[in-house]
Protein backbone atom coordinates (compact mmCIF):
# COMPACT_ATOMS: atom_id res chain seq x y z
CA UNK A 1 0.00 0.00 0.00
CA UNK A 2 2.75 2.43 0.97
CA UNK A 3 6.10 2.14 -0.75
CA UNK A 4 9.06 4.24 0.26
CA UNK A 5 12.02 3.99 -2.11
CA UNK A 6 15.40 5.72 -2.01
CA UNK A 7 14.06 8.41 0.30
CA UNK A 8 16.71 11.01 0.91
CA UNK A 9 16.29 14.16 2.97
CA UNK A 10 18.98 16.81 3.07
CA UNK A 11 19.31 19.95 5.16
CA UNK A 12 21.12 23.01 4.08
CA UNK A 13 22.80 24.23 7.17
CA UNK A 14 25.29 27.04 6.46
CA UNK A 15 25.46 26.18 2.76
CA UNK A 16 26.72 22.67 3.52
CA UNK A 17 24.22 19.90 2.84
CA UNK A 18 23.65 17.60 5.76
CA UNK A 19 21.93 14.31 5.08
CA UNK A 20 19.23 13.44 7.61
CA UNK A 21 17.78 10.43 5.81
CA UNK A 22 19.69 8.36 3.24
CA UNK A 23 18.21 5.86 0.81
CA UNK A 24 15.45 4.54 3.01
CA UNK A 25 13.33 1.74 1.50
CA UNK A 26 10.39 -0.08 3.01
CA UNK A 27 6.83 -1.07 2.19
CA UNK A 28 3.70 -1.35 4.28
CA UNK A 29 0.97 -3.71 3.14
CA UNK A 30 -2.73 -3.27 3.83
CA UNK A 31 -3.62 -3.62 7.50
CA UNK A 32 -0.02 -4.16 8.47
CA UNK A 33 1.77 -2.55 11.40
CA UNK A 34 5.29 -1.44 10.62
CA UNK A 35 7.59 -0.18 13.34
CA UNK A 36 10.55 2.05 12.78
CA UNK A 37 12.98 1.92 15.66
CA UNK A 38 16.11 3.92 16.25
CA UNK A 39 17.74 6.35 18.62
CA UNK A 40 17.15 10.09 18.43
CA UNK A 41 18.70 11.62 15.35
CA UNK A 42 18.34 8.42 13.37
CA UNK A 43 15.93 10.08 10.96
CA UNK A 44 12.87 8.05 11.92
CA UNK A 45 10.66 11.05 12.68
CA UNK A 46 11.90 12.80 9.54
CA UNK A 47 10.79 9.82 7.48
CA UNK A 48 7.36 9.86 9.10
CA UNK A 49 6.97 13.59 8.55
CA UNK A 50 8.02 13.26 4.92
CA UNK A 51 5.36 10.59 4.35
CA UNK A 52 2.70 12.77 5.93
CA UNK A 53 3.78 15.74 3.81
CA UNK A 54 4.79 17.79 6.81
CA UNK A 55 8.30 18.64 5.67
CA UNK A 56 7.83 21.83 3.74
CA UNK A 57 10.74 23.82 5.01
CA UNK A 58 12.69 25.72 2.43
CA UNK A 59 16.07 24.69 3.83
CA UNK A 60 15.41 21.07 3.07
CA UNK A 61 15.36 18.90 -0.06
CA UNK A 62 13.69 15.56 -0.52
CA UNK A 63 14.22 12.97 -3.25
CA UNK A 64 13.10 9.43 -3.91
CA UNK A 65 9.63 7.94 -4.04
CA UNK A 66 6.84 7.85 -1.50
CA UNK A 67 3.97 6.04 -3.12
CA UNK A 68 0.58 5.67 -1.43
CA UNK A 69 -1.68 3.47 -3.56
CA UNK A 70 -0.30 4.88 -6.77
CA UNK A 71 -0.08 8.52 -5.66
CA UNK A 72 3.39 10.01 -5.54
CA UNK A 73 3.21 11.94 -2.27
CA UNK A 74 6.66 13.47 -2.55
CA UNK A 75 5.95 15.42 -5.71
CA UNK A 76 2.30 16.17 -5.09
CA UNK A 77 1.31 19.85 -5.18
CA UNK A 78 0.34 21.33 -1.81
CA UNK A 79 -3.38 21.56 -2.56
CA UNK A 80 -3.60 17.89 -3.54
CA UNK A 81 -1.50 16.93 -0.56
CA UNK A 82 -3.93 18.67 1.80
CA UNK A 83 -6.74 16.46 0.52
CA UNK A 84 -4.72 13.42 1.55
CA UNK A 85 -3.56 14.77 4.90
CA UNK A 86 -6.11 13.85 7.53
CA UNK A 87 -8.18 11.98 4.95
CA UNK A 88 -5.94 9.10 3.78
CA UNK A 89 -3.21 9.63 6.33
CA UNK A 90 -3.81 10.23 10.02
CA UNK A 91 -0.99 11.46 12.22
CA UNK A 92 -0.58 11.07 15.97
CA UNK A 93 2.21 13.06 17.59
CA UNK A 94 4.41 12.42 20.56
CA UNK A 95 3.17 14.91 23.10
CA UNK A 96 -0.62 15.04 23.26
CA UNK A 97 -0.67 18.19 25.39
CA UNK A 98 1.40 20.31 23.07
CA UNK A 99 -0.11 18.89 19.94
CA UNK A 100 -3.57 20.01 20.97
CA UNK A 101 -4.56 23.63 20.64
CA UNK A 102 -4.93 24.82 24.26
CA UNK A 103 -7.68 27.35 23.54
CA UNK A 104 -10.00 25.04 21.60
CA UNK A 105 -12.26 22.38 23.06
CA UNK A 106 -11.37 18.74 22.44
CA UNK A 107 -14.46 18.00 20.35
CA UNK A 108 -13.86 20.54 17.58
CA UNK A 109 -10.27 19.35 17.35
CA UNK A 110 -11.40 15.75 16.91
CA UNK A 111 -13.86 16.90 14.26
CA UNK A 112 -11.47 19.15 12.45
CA UNK A 113 -10.46 16.82 9.61
CA UNK A 114 -14.18 16.55 8.79
CA UNK A 115 -14.83 20.22 9.26
CA UNK A 116 -12.14 21.17 6.75
CA UNK A 117 -13.91 18.99 4.16
CA UNK A 118 -17.42 19.98 5.24
CA UNK A 119 -18.50 20.90 1.71
CA UNK A 120 -17.28 17.71 0.04
CA UNK A 121 -18.59 15.48 2.81
CA UNK A 122 -21.90 17.27 3.10
CA UNK A 123 -22.15 16.74 6.84
CA UNK A 124 -24.11 18.92 9.22
CA UNK A 125 -22.77 20.11 12.57
CA UNK A 126 -24.81 17.52 14.47
CA UNK A 127 -23.69 14.69 12.21
CA UNK A 128 -20.06 15.67 12.65
CA UNK A 129 -20.50 15.78 16.39
CA UNK A 130 -22.15 12.37 16.36
CA UNK A 131 -19.29 10.90 14.32
CA UNK A 132 -16.71 12.52 16.59
CA UNK A 133 -18.36 11.14 19.71
CA UNK A 134 -18.69 7.71 18.16
CA UNK A 135 -15.00 7.80 17.26
CA UNK A 136 -14.03 8.94 20.73
CA UNK A 137 -16.01 6.07 22.22
CA UNK A 138 -14.32 3.58 19.90
CA UNK A 139 -10.89 4.64 21.18
CA UNK A 140 -12.02 4.01 24.74
CA UNK A 141 -13.13 7.45 25.83
CA UNK A 142 -16.24 6.30 27.65
CA UNK A 143 -17.50 9.71 28.74
CA UNK A 144 -16.98 11.13 25.27
CA UNK A 145 -19.82 13.64 25.70
CA UNK A 146 -18.04 15.34 28.60
CA UNK A 147 -14.62 15.24 26.95
CA UNK A 148 -16.10 16.67 23.76
CA UNK A 149 -16.83 19.90 25.64
CA UNK A 150 -13.69 19.89 27.78
CA UNK A 151 -10.49 21.77 27.08
CA UNK A 152 -7.25 19.80 26.59
CA UNK A 153 -5.85 20.81 29.97
CA UNK A 154 -8.91 19.45 31.73
CA UNK A 155 -8.41 15.82 30.73
CA UNK A 156 -5.64 13.36 31.51
CA UNK A 157 -2.63 12.58 29.32
CA UNK A 158 -4.00 9.20 28.33
CA UNK A 159 -7.37 10.71 27.45
CA UNK A 160 -5.65 13.38 25.39
CA UNK A 161 -3.70 10.80 23.40
CA UNK A 162 -6.86 8.76 22.86
CA UNK A 163 -8.61 11.90 21.65
CA UNK A 164 -5.71 12.56 19.28
CA UNK A 165 -6.00 9.03 17.92
CA UNK A 166 -9.75 9.55 17.49
CA UNK A 167 -9.00 12.80 15.66
CA UNK A 168 -6.55 11.08 13.36
CA UNK A 169 -9.01 8.27 12.60
CA UNK A 170 -12.12 10.35 12.16
CA UNK A 171 -12.10 10.04 8.35
CA UNK A 172 -10.99 6.39 8.41
CA UNK A 173 -7.57 6.85 6.83
CA UNK A 174 -5.75 4.01 5.11
CA UNK A 175 -2.60 4.79 7.02
CA UNK A 176 -2.12 5.92 10.59
CA UNK A 177 1.30 7.32 11.42
CA UNK A 178 2.16 7.37 15.10
CA UNK A 179 5.30 9.28 15.97
CA UNK A 180 6.32 8.08 19.44
CA UNK A 181 2.74 8.28 20.68
CA UNK A 182 3.50 6.61 24.01
CA UNK A 183 6.74 8.34 24.96
CA UNK A 184 5.09 11.16 26.90
CA UNK A 185 2.78 8.82 28.80
CA UNK A 186 2.97 6.69 31.95
CA UNK A 187 3.91 3.05 31.49
CA UNK A 188 0.45 1.77 32.38
CA UNK A 189 -1.16 4.19 29.94
CA UNK A 190 1.42 3.18 27.32
CA UNK A 191 0.23 -0.39 27.49
CA UNK A 192 -3.39 0.67 27.08
CA UNK A 193 -2.58 2.81 24.04
CA UNK A 194 -0.67 -0.09 22.44
CA UNK A 195 -3.62 -2.41 23.04
CA UNK A 196 -5.92 0.21 21.57
CA UNK A 197 -3.83 0.53 18.41
CA UNK A 198 -3.80 -3.23 18.03
CA UNK A 199 -7.56 -3.37 18.43
CA UNK A 200 -8.11 -0.54 15.94
CA UNK A 201 -5.82 -2.23 13.44
CA UNK A 202 -7.77 -5.46 13.78
CA UNK A 203 -11.17 -3.80 13.51
CA UNK A 204 -10.63 -1.09 10.90
CA UNK A 205 -7.83 -2.72 8.90
CA UNK A 206 -5.93 0.53 8.64
CA UNK A 207 -2.18 0.19 8.28
CA UNK A 208 -0.05 1.69 11.02
CA UNK A 209 3.41 3.16 10.79
CA UNK A 210 4.67 3.22 14.33
CA UNK A 211 7.78 5.17 15.28
CA UNK A 212 9.47 4.52 18.58
CA UNK A 213 12.83 4.28 20.28
CA UNK A 214 11.40 1.74 22.66
CA UNK A 215 11.95 -1.82 21.44
CA UNK A 216 9.57 -3.44 23.89
CA UNK A 217 6.72 -1.30 22.53
CA UNK A 218 7.66 -2.18 18.95
CA UNK A 219 7.85 -5.85 19.84
CA UNK A 220 4.42 -5.82 21.43
CA UNK A 221 2.78 -4.12 18.50
CA UNK A 222 4.46 -4.48 15.12
CA UNK A 223 4.35 -7.10 12.37
CA UNK A 224 7.38 -5.72 10.62
CA UNK A 225 10.33 -3.73 11.92
CA UNK A 226 12.75 -1.30 10.30
CA UNK A 227 15.83 -0.45 12.32
CA UNK A 228 17.38 2.93 11.54
CA UNK A 229 20.67 4.51 12.51
CA UNK A 230 22.15 7.81 11.35
CA UNK A 231 19.59 8.15 8.57
CA UNK A 232 20.23 4.68 7.19
CA UNK A 233 18.17 1.51 7.36
CA UNK A 234 20.34 -0.96 9.26
CA UNK A 235 18.04 -3.91 9.21
CA UNK A 236 14.54 -4.75 8.09
CA UNK A 237 12.38 -7.80 8.57
CA UNK A 238 9.43 -9.32 10.31
CA UNK A 239 9.13 -8.67 14.00
CA UNK A 240 9.82 -12.31 14.78
CA UNK A 241 12.98 -12.44 12.71
CA UNK A 242 14.42 -9.25 14.07
CA UNK A 243 13.82 -10.09 17.70
CA UNK A 244 14.75 -13.78 17.59
CA UNK A 245 17.59 -13.62 15.13
CA UNK A 246 19.04 -10.15 14.64
CA UNK A 247 21.62 -10.10 11.84
CA UNK A 248 23.29 -6.78 12.45
CA UNK A 249 25.50 -5.89 15.36
CA UNK A 250 23.62 -2.60 15.95
CA UNK A 251 20.26 -4.36 16.23
CA UNK A 252 21.74 -6.81 18.67
CA UNK A 253 23.02 -3.91 20.76
CA UNK A 254 19.59 -2.35 20.76
CA UNK A 255 17.88 -5.53 21.85
CA UNK A 256 20.25 -6.53 24.61
Amino acid sequence: MLTVKDLRIEFFDHELPEVAVKDVDFTIEDSEILGIVGESGSGKSMTAMAIAGLLNRKDLTKSGVIDLDGIDLLNLPRTKLREIQGNDIGFVFQDPLNSMNPVLKVGPQVEEAMRIRKKTLGLSKEEMKAIAIENMKSVGLDDAERIYDAYPHQISGGQRQRAMIAAALVLKPKLLICDEPTTALDVTVQKKIIDLLKKLNRETHCSILFISHDLSVIRALCDKVVVMKDGLVVEEGSSKEIFSNPKEEYTRQLIF
Partner: peptide, 26 residues
Amino acid sequence: LKDYSMTAYARGNNTTGLLYRHVLKN
Protein backbone atom coordinates in the same frame (compact mmCIF):
# COMPACT_ATOMS: atom_id res chain seq x y z
CA LEU B 1 5.85 26.61 14.62
CA LYS B 2 4.31 24.99 17.68
CA ASP B 3 3.25 21.36 17.82
CA TYR B 4 -0.47 22.03 17.58
CA SER B 5 0.09 23.90 14.31
CA MET B 6 1.83 20.83 12.95
CA THR B 7 -1.18 18.74 14.02
CA ALA B 8 -3.46 21.17 12.24
CA TYR B 9 -1.41 20.83 9.07
CA ALA B 10 -1.50 17.05 9.38
CA ARG B 11 -5.31 17.24 9.31
CA GLY B 12 -5.22 19.01 5.98
CA ASN B 13 -5.48 22.66 7.04
CA ASN B 14 -4.16 25.30 4.69
CA THR B 15 -2.29 28.35 5.93
CA THR B 16 -5.44 30.45 6.20
CA GLY B 17 -7.29 27.77 8.15
CA LEU B 18 -4.35 27.33 10.46
CA LEU B 19 -4.05 31.06 11.01
CA TYR B 20 -7.67 31.81 11.81
CA ARG B 21 -8.75 28.56 13.45
CA HIS B 22 -5.67 27.89 15.53
CA VAL B 23 -2.86 30.40 15.64
CA LEU B 24 -4.59 33.74 15.97
CA LYS B 25 -6.40 33.00 19.23
CA ASN B 26 -3.09 32.03 20.84
